[in-house]
Design a protein around this nucleic acid. Sequence first.
DNA 1: CAGGTCTCCTGCTAGC
DNA 2: TGCTAGCAGGAGACCT
Length: 272
Amino acid sequence: MPELPEVETVKNTLKKLVLNKKINEVKVLYPNMIEFPSVEEFIKELQGKTILDIKRRGKWLLFEFDNKYLISHLRMEGKYFIHEHSEPIGKHDHVIFFFTDNELRYQDTRKFGRMYLIDKDKLEDSKPICALGLEPWDKALTKEYLKGKYKHKKLPIKTVLLDQSIITGIGNIYADEILFLSKLDPLKPCYELNDTNLEDIIKYTREVLEHAIKLGGTTIKSYESAKGVHGLFQNELLVHSNAGELCKSCGTEIIKIRVGGRGTYYCPTCQK
DNA sequence: CAGGTCTCCTGCTAGC
DNA sequence: TGCTAGCAGGAGACCT
């Protein structure tokens, strides 16, 4: 499941592969993937356009064109692969961007991914980008900012870490890791967090994500940044997906619970 | 307004 | 062995 570090890795991989390439043609094989505008307009607008840059905002991938951004969310299993024209179309290839020498295919087993084509000057004011909160490294991300957001919230901290309108980019894997390092019970209500807790959340959010980016993200299930390229952060996971294993800090068994409908892994001894 | 629930999808797995 | 019910999950829609 691509979170910020995986999207960052995909962005860097794609920049090496498709920057400055001109799209001759677009094929949309699964129309629901295109959230806005209509599929017809999406195809027409992209035809003949050159990919000027690729950026990232939260978990969104931003392909920059002269007057538009194609923004793409990979959700659970979305992947971009370069293929030769001759390669047969796969069962899960849903959108294809044709270049002269090869093509970029968006593959998504679960079809959860979504794409938008937005006017460049309206990007920050249009959904979904307008609903995003601060990037983890934004200087505005301070304990005062979090205090303001968390003050009246009774929801568990785990749930709120996944709220993209506060800090953007954290998903289920990294939320568990951040809470483990912050020694916080995932079920702890937001408003109960003290200054130290908030400082720890900010510190470890940045540390965990930076470390994961360095290692090319986490490969659980089927994430790849390019064909056969897997991240390495899964070897560094302290709690996530480690139910039954022993806590590296205290030796207690890591347990799995559900918080806000999400599988959540934590050490009941270290995290209070 | 905050928060809960449903929805979208398919592959995998537990259980019979 | 083969089948199926149930689960997994990011974020928007919808409801309370």
